[in-house]
Simulated scan of single mutants.
Amino acid sequence: MYDVTALGELLIDFASRSTDAAGYPTMAANPGGAPCNLLAALSTYGCSTAFLGKVGDDAFGKLLLGTLQRVGIETAGVVADPSVFTTLAFVAFNAAGERSFFFARKPGADSLLRVSELRLELIDDCRDFHFGTFSLTCGPARSATRKAVEHAKSRGKWISFDPNLRLSLWHSPAEARRWILWGTKQADIVKISDEETSFLWGDVSPKEAAQKLHTAGVSVVFVTLGPKGCYYSGNGFDGSVAPPENIRPVDTTGAGDIFGGSALSRLLKTGKALDALTNDDLEGAARFACCAASLSTQTLGGISSVPPEGAVRRFMEQC
Rank of each mutant, 00 (worst) to 15 (best):
E9Y: 13
G33T: 03
L120R: 04
F237M: 00
T133G: 01
P140V: 09
Q69I: 05
L264H: 12
D275R: 13
T67G: 11
S160F: 04
W170P: 04
D162N: 11
S265P: 03
E121I: 00
A144T: 06
R266W: 05
L65P: 02
A76F: 01
G217K: 04
A152N: 06
L267V: 05
F101I: 03
L120H: 00
D188L: 03
P31A: 10
A141G: 02
T224H: 06
G239I: 03
E74P: 02
K272F: 04
E121R: 02
E309T: 10
V204K: 01
G260Q: 09
D110R: 01
T197S: 07
G183M: 09
L165N: 02
N37S: 07
A209L: 00
L169Q: 03
S111T: 09
P25W: 05
F102M: 13
L112T: 15
W182L: 13
N235W: 07
A41D: 09
T184P: 05
R105H: 12
T252G: 05
A242M: 11
P82W: 14
G132W: 12
V115D: 10
P31K: 09
C126N: 05
L282Q: 01
S100P: 05
S262T: 12
G32E: 06
G261Q: 01
A109G: 15
V221D: 09
D238M: 07
F237E: 08
L88C: 07
T75L: 03
A89G: 12
F134S: 15
T44A: 14
Q318D: 11
L112M: 14
N37T: 11
G229V: 10
L165D: 01
K272V: 01
A89D: 07
